[in-house]
Design a protein around this nucleic acid. Structure first.
Length: 1074
RNA sequence: GGACGAUUAGCUCAGUUGGUUAGAGCGCCACGUUGACAUCGUGGAGGUCGUUGGUUCGAGUCCAAUAUCGUCCA
């Protein structure tokens, strides 16, 4: 077995092997406890930020997914019933427009050509393909979701929650119909969302004109008020002119009226500090609330003075009846007509050419018009307040804390939530309405329907709605709780028509945390794999067990859109928050600081990187980026398929028209096609694939771990489990005296004879039944015997790292956790511990205990790493199971069947020994100092050198304990150590303050060079000493600094001076100079 | 326009409540294939911490101003 371990870790093989293994074992499944379970596990719940089905996932999703999987695996190991709920979002406008766009490009068809049903059908086909792709990408990153529970926001489970919530809100009077300015595409005659418009500068004009001020009788006073505009035709819909309240040019006019010359309407002069700017133009602006967002906002502040907004447009962009004699003209034609009329009437002042930033529809490429239209709203006052309170009293906590203000500020505005969208893809609004001549007839019809014996208030709600604006009427609205209601036929027979609009996507995703757990169904567990949960007992056990969730992991841009709304609906429907923590992680950017996104074309498919660097390498790297401050910049390159040279990505690589662009390698000058999300390379073509050097980190780390484990396994021949008490080794091996070790050995013997699976052994949350006694502390007092100092050291370090990683994960500081682990594995376990135990592994007497500690440390290390790098750790765990199925410290136990269910390390506090770590550090410094001398003089490893060390008896004792290790690591023989050591002639030397080392190097080293080197060292020291002396000679430092700081500086200075003394002595001896 | 974040080595980033000589990975230089690992080992070079003021015995860290970049909101 041992000889079969390859020298390189093969990620693809491990990934292919272990994911299906975990799935088949059901390790990802999370279930509510069986009724009557006396010791149920506590739940840990993460709801995935549902990716939308518009396109495939990129590295931003990979980061998001990695962190959630990491937390889920970690909590699972800690003994929680860890649920990670997967699913996808229908993403209304984004998905519909992608499908429409493609249909138009490929078939020249619009949605009006094929109709609502056919379009929706096509989108379902798209959804099926991309959902499949997305879920497979998630699995590729190792996602341990409970895949039986996959949900989609338009599926029957989520739809039921949406309908129930809408109905409940409608009944509670929280939903109303009102006006709102939208971006109107006059060409396609539809509203487009804010993220579906782009801004572009166009050539336009900037007209200055004036309105005459009139007196109370409506007669001109002779005064005029000037303003400028780029859209003169909107003056037909003006409802005010506005000045700044402190603008002295106009203060006397505030409250007076002006007349619009082209239609004679009188409108007030109002003061509004937000809209008017004294420093711009005339300082006065006209206000057209129905056709400008800023004006509309102004109207909401000054409704009484202004009256209702006046809509000027038909849906096709021509003027409506409010356009007067220009009714029916296109708005652009009307513009010139209005200007001409103003000029004729003598109110035109000037015009200049100007570049005007104008919003365009991404879908028709035509300018959009702000357009006042009827929409559905949710009243936010009480809902928002509840969500604010939940954060204020810390029922929901943000990590990092600063994001709490984004959430609170936004909710604090309590702006009503516009939930309708003029789309076909989504949850259709469940309201039917019929026009009525007036309120009394509407009320009569309402009463008639409600008196029907089949009328059910839990299924249908009726309200009378009267539009206040001109031209509006009265309607009777019926909201139905389900689509299978018999009332649909009845209502439609009575002339009711269903609303054409669908709900905002966020309305359904806001319900995600409870909808996916089956709400509002209180009688059945939510379905598994599309089938009813066979274990259902007549109650929904899943919802109360898994709600509220534990933590939401997401990025900051949807704190308002999604996080706030989940809290709000969770409180509304469930009476409790949906999660306790919100972990906000960085955003992934490309090499130029642009956020990675599908629409920018700079998205990198995680699969590309997984193939190149391995899943674990990708995960470990990306987790190492997930800190609290900065976004993650990923400069990428293309690997030339001809010479494997790296071609750095430049901005122009992302900007190209559809086609087959080529990239030229600067090294071999050959061209090749390159990978982009926007096209597929030609069949058989050599493609320059995306590489991101930063991911080599994770790949290399995995390989290092692999080889460390490989080394361990190659040296486990003859391994036997045994208690390691770090008592004197030889007597114990001879069976002399039972002691602590004897007791533990007895315990082990009985364990081996009975148990196959370990009971819980840690300080985690395992149930009472699973508790075992606290592991015995390792006796660690120095001088106890010939215990290997490196064993105690590595265990002390392991205990520290375990504690660090656990604490860091509790705070979602993933980057620091990976650093801690990497440093431990690479710089401590590999560089020092493995090197130091090599002599013992070759010694028959010492080998058994060295093996036991080694395998114990490896076991714990793998457990610490598993959440970060699941595949390699499972692979190693399974291999280790073959060689050392019973292992662990201090008393071995049978390892778990699978890595994924191994307990998280805990309860090792007693192993920590800071004093020992300090002593060990001194040994390391001695070894480095010797290497340093070798390095400086470039002495080949083949040349033998010897070292003597002048130091305290204590250090000498440590040094002698590890003499073989010292010699191996320093590549020098230790000839003497102790206070009596004297300096040999013609030797190189180093000084550490409390230890001086001497290396006789006659013939190897130019003594002049050594003198020069030492002098340089001494000069450097003098600089430091000077700094310290200056500090100590400063009386206010002595007086004001804390005493312990002063003492510390004194001690450091003394050490530096001693070190300098040794150096100076060496210089004198070598050079004969004073 | 408002809020938040960033600016530290050639690159990408750490730096906990202010306290010895500011760290890591990659890259670079030199040496090395010694029985885990060249996706490696050993040693080395490289930074007046964006700028300007201030507080303090002491500032990468705290305060103010300023510049540049990014994100969200309007």
């Amino acid at each position: 077995m041992t000889t079969e371990i390859p020298k390189q870790y093969d990620p693809a093989a491990a990934e292919a092997r272990w994911f299906p293994y975990w799935e088949s074992r059901g390790d990802f499944n999370a279930n509510a406890p069986q009724p009557g379970d006396p010791h149920p596990k506590p739940p840990h719940v993460i709801m995935i930020p549902l990716p939308n089905v518009t396109g495939a996932l990129h590295m931003g999703h990979a980061l998001n997914g990695t962190l959630q999987d990491l937390l889920t695996r970690w909590r699972r190991m800690q003994g929680y019933e860890a649920l990670w709920m997967p699913g996808t979002d229908h993403a209304g406008i984004a998905t519909q427009s992608v499908v429409e766009k493609r249909m138009l490009e490929e078939e020249g068809l619009t949605r009006h050509d094929i109709g609502r049903e056919a379009l929706v059908q096509r989108i379902w086909t798209w959804k099926d393909a991309y959902e499949k792709r997305i879920l497979s990408q998630l699995k590729s990153i190792g996602a341990s979701c409970d895949w039986r529970r996959v949900r989609f926001t338009l599926d029957e489970v989520c739809s039921r929650a949406v309908r129930q919530t809408f109905f409940k809100m409608f009944k509670d009077g929280l939903i109303y119909r009102g006006k709102r300015l939208v971006n109107w595409d006059t060409f396609l005659q539809t509203a487009v969302a804010d993220d579906e418009v782009y801004e572009e500068e166009v050539d336009g004009h900037f007209w200055t004109m004036n309105y005459p001020v009139v007196n109370e009788a409506g007669q001109p006073t002779g005064e005029r008020i000037s303003f400028s505009t780029t859209r003169p035709e909107t003056m037909l819909g003006d409802t005010a002119v506005c000045v700044h309240p402190t603008d002295e040019r106009y203060t006397h006019l505030i409250g007076k009226r002006v007349q619009i010359p082209v239609n004679g309407r009188l409108i007030p002069i109002i003061a509004d500090a937000l809209l008017a700017d004294k420093t711009l133009g005339t300082g006065c602006v006209k206000v057209t609330p129905a056709h400008d967002p800023n004006d509309y906002a102004c109207w909401t502040r000054n409704q009484e003075a202004m009256g209702e907004p006046i809509n000027l447009l038909n849906s096709n962009g021509t003027l409506n009846e409010n356009g007067g004699k220009w009714e029916g003209l296109d708005r652009l034609v009307a513009r010139d007509a209005v200007v001409a009329e103003m000029e004729t009437l003598g109110h035109f002042e000037k015009v200049e050419d100007r570049k005007i930033p104008l919003k365009h529809s991404d879908r028709s490429k035509t300018p959009v018009e702000p357009y006042l239209s009827e929409q559905w709203f949710v009243k936010m006052e009480t809902l928002a307040q509840a969500a604010i309170d939940a954060v204020l009293d810390n029922r929901v906590t943000f990590y990092p804390e600063r994001y709490r203000s984004s959430y609170l500020d936004w909710l604090g505005e309590k702006r009503d939530w516009c939930i309708s969208r003029q789309l076909w893809w989504g949850h259709r609004i469940p309201v039917w309405s019929v026009d009525q001549p007036d309120e009394s007839s509407a009320a009569a019809l309402k009463q008639q329907l409600e008196s029907d014996p089949r009328f059910d208030r839990d299924q249908i709600e009726l309200t009378v709605h009267t539009t206040t604006t001109a031209g509006g009427g009265t309607t009777l609205q019926a909201c139905l709780a389900t689509d299978d209601s018999a009332w649909i036929t009845q209502l439609e027979g009575a002339g009711f028509k269903r609303d054409e609009d669908v709900l905002d996507t966020w309305f359904s995703s806001a319900l995600w945390p409870h909808a996916t757990l089956g709400w509002p169904d209180q009688e059945h567990n939510p379905p598994l794999d599309g089938h009813a949960d066979a274990s259902s007992t007549g109650r929904n056990e899943v919802l109360p067990y898994f709600y509220p969730g534990s933590v939401l992991v997401t990025s900051r841009d949807i704190i308002t859109l999604w996080v706030a709304r989940m809290v709000l609906t969770g409180l509304y429907n469930m009476g409790d928050v949906p999660f306790k923590h919100v972990c906000i992680h960085p955003k992934i950017q490309d090499g130029f600081g642009q956020t990675m996104s599908k629409s920018k074309g700079n998205g990198v498919d995680p699969i590309e990187l997984i193939e190149k660097y391995g899943c674990d390498g990708m995960r470990f790297t990306i987790a190492s980026f997930a800190g609290e401050t900065q976004d993650v910049r990923l400069p990428l390159g293309y690997e030339c398929p001809h010479c494997q040279g790296i071609i750095p990505q430049e901005p122009h690589h992302l900007k190209f028209k559809p086609g087959k662009p080529k990239i030229k390698c600067s090294k071999c000058k050959k061209e090749s096609q390159y990978a982009t999300p926007n096209y597929l390379p030609d069949e058989g073509e050599l493609v320059a694939r995306i590489v991101i050097e930063r991911f080599e980190n994770g790949r290399n780390f995995c390989n290092k771990l692999w080889n460390a484990a490989r080394f361990a396994m190659m040296n486990l021949e003859g391994y036997t489990p045994g208690v390691v008490a770090l008592a004197p080794l030889a007597p114990a091996l001879r069976g002399e005296g039972p002691g602590v070790r004897g007791e533990l050995q007895q315990g082990l013997d009985s364990l081996l004879s009975t148990a196959t699976e370990p009971t819980a052994t840690d300080g985690n949350v395992r149930s009472e039944a699973g508790k075992t006694p606290h592991p015995h502390p390792l006796p660690a007092e120095p001088g106890r015997g010939d215990v290997a100092i490196e064993d105690r050291w590595i265990l002390s370090r392991l205990a520290t790292v375990t504690d660090e990683v656990t604490s860091l994960l509790n705070l979602y500081k993933f980057d620091a956790a990976t650093r801690s682990l990497r440093d431990f594995v690479w710089n401590e376990f590999c560089d020092w511990y493995l090197e130091m135990i090599k002599p013992r592994l070759r010694d028959e007497i010492l080998r058994p205990d060295a093996q036991r500690v080694l395998v114990g440390v490896l076991d714990t290390t793998l457990r610490l790493l598993h959440p970060f790098t699941p595949f390699i750790t499972e692979e190693l765990w399974q291999r280790l199971k073959e060689i050392a199925p019973v292992r662990g410290l201090p008393a071995p136990v049978a390892a778990t069947e699978a890595m994924i269910i191994a307990p998280w390390p805990a309860g090792m506090e007693d192993w920590r020994d800071p004093a020992l770590e300090t002593r060990f550090q001194r040994l390391q410094e001695l070894i480095v100092a010797v290497r340093n001398v070798r390095g400086t003089y470039n002495i080949s490893p083949a040349v033998a050198v010897s070292t003597s060390v002048r130091c305290s008896a204590e250090i000498a004792s440590d040094l002698n304990q590890v003499k073989p290790q010292f010699e191996l690591l320093a590549k020098a023989t230790l000839t003497a150590a102790g206070p009596e050591v004297t300096r040999p002639t013609a030797s190189a030397s180093f000084s550490l303050g409390d230890a001086d080392g001497f290396l006789p190097l006659e013939g190897l080293v130019d003594l002049q060079a050594e003198v020069a080197r030492l002098k340089k060292e001494a000069d450097k020291l003098r600089g430091f000493i000077g700094g310290h002396e200056k500090k100590l000679s400063n009386q206010s430092f002595i007086d004001r600094a804390p005493p312990e700081v002063v003492v510390e500086v004194r001690e450091t200075l003394a050490g530096l001076q001693k070190q300098l003394g040794s150096l100076e002595a060496a210089i004198v001896e070598l050079s004969g100079e004073a």
